[in-house]
Design a binder for these strands. Structure first.
Length: 402
DNA sequence: TTACATGATTTTAG
DNA sequence: CTAAAATCATGTAA
């Protein structure tokens, strides 16, 4: 700031000749007249230079005097012009703002998280809908959600308050500077263009502060979000009944445990969980069953027997109560294979009309195990590889463990 | 506290 | 996209 006057003044001598202001000084003919004008000009400049040294009243008076001088507008224009050519052209090149991509990123994120968007709607509503859709067990879920929403709205409130404060401060400061510059532009060569430039600089400064605010807000949201996600990851076991239903379906469709979309929906409904959870459950069940069939045999027997009993009861109302013997069918997979359940499985699957054991009816249970273990369900259910040579029952736990 | 069970998520393959 | 496989992170029984 303080170098502008220097530059201005240092150009002053050339200016007179250059800018045509006092042209008549030379044309005017008589030297005394020209000398007088020169002197007058020098006086004016001297006054400008010393104006800051004056006391306020004195300066005010001189300012007034200067303002009223007939040469003032022309001189002012010249000063502005010179200044424009020298000072401003230097920094004129680096004016353009790069439109910071990071700022845009932050803005987008804040908008997406519903912090800077419309007041209370958008994401919250969608999230609420999702929460509501995620099963009847809404209590826990919605509690977490409302917690999240409360925290989010807290962040949003802080954000808006701060933003408003910044905005206000920026406006105040801008107005102040503008007034100051306008005021000074009466005595200093300050063009409107320069004022505008100054305002831009101020705005940029403030928006960089705002960016910091946005950044920290984003961080806060991210932290909150990750916490919420972690919370959401908190596992809650399904209730007993749901597990029963799922297991029942799984073991009664053991040959092809891939419930259709409709079946999943139905199961989801019955178990009060989401379809996605049903899918998760079946995904986990399939892989874990396949990985260690032995471990699941007992469970398989139990559900198979239950299904059989149910089917029997349904078909012949005779309440057979045929001593299911299932709960303790076999202590281990090995004993299971050779002991009782072969028949049980056959009968059960036969009752269910399941295609699985088509090729297995003739084979023993052991082969069934090996087929299932090797093949998996997806591609090759054909038990042509029933061979299972020399494979004792012990080979069942060919698990690679976890 | 540990080991295992289990729902959910991420990675990988088709 | 779906499903398998791997992995995570918690719930729970011992």
């Amino acid at each position: 700031m303080d170098e502008q006057p220097r530059m201005m003044l240092s150009h002053t001598p050339g200016m007179a000749a250059h800018a045509g202001l006092p042209q008549h000084v030379h044309e005017g003919g008589t030297a005394p007249d020209g000398d007088a004008r020169k002197q007058e000009l020098g006086e004016i400049l001297q006054q400008i230079m010393t104006i800051t040294d004056q006391s306020l009243d004195e300066a005010q008076a001189r300012k007034h005097g200067l303002n009223c001088h007939r040469m003032k507008p022309a001189l002012f224009n010249v000063l502005c012009e010179i200044k424009e050519k020298t000072v401003l052209s230097i920094r004129g090149a680096q004016e353009e703002e790069p439109l910071d991509p990071q700022l845009m990123r932050l803005d987008n994120m804040l908008l997406a998280e519903g912090v800077s968007g419309p007041d209370k709607g958008g994401g919250s509503v969608a999230a609420a809908a999702a929460a509501a859709a995620s099963g009847g067990v809404g209590a826990d879920n919605s509690a977490e959600h409302s917690d999240y929403r409360a925290k989010l709205s807290q962040i949003r409130q802080i954000y808006h308050t701060e933003l408003e404060k910044y905005e206000q401060a920026c406006n105040e400061f801008t107005t102040h500077v503008m007034n100051l510059l306008r005021e000074q532009s009466r005595t200093r060569p300050i063009s409107p263009k320069e004022i505008e430039r100054m305002v831009n600089i101020i705005h940029r400064k403030f928006s960089s502060i705002q960016m910091q605010l946005k950044q920290s807000t984003c961080e806060a949201v991210m932290i909150l979000r990750s916490r919420f996600l972690d919370a959401r990851r908190k596992r809650r076991n399904f209730n007993k009944q749901a597990t029963e239903i799922l297991n029942e379906y799984f073991y009664s469709h053991l040959s092809n445990p891939y419930p259709s979309e409709e079946a999943k929906e139905e199961l989801a409904k019955k178990c009060s969980i989401t379809v996605a959870q049903v899918s998760n459950w079946f995904g986990n069940k399939r892989i874990r069953y396949k990985k260690n069939i032995g471990k699941f045999q007992e469970e398989a027997n139990m559900y198979a027997a239950r299904t059989a009993v149910n089917a029997a009861n349904a078909s012949s109302h005779g309440s057979q109560a045929n001593s299911p013997s299932t709960p303790n069918s076999a202590g281990s997979a090995a004993s299971f294979n050779v002991s009782n359940s072969g028949d049980l499985f056959m009968s059960v699957h036969a009752l269910n009309g399941d295609s699985f054991q088509g090729a297995q009816v003739g084979a023993n249970v052991q082969s069934q195990v090996s087929v299932t273990a090797n093949g998996g369900w997806q591609d090759a259910p054909t038990p042509s590889s029933v061979t299972s040579p020399t494979e004792g029952p012990g080979s069942v736990h060919s698990d690679t463990s976890n």
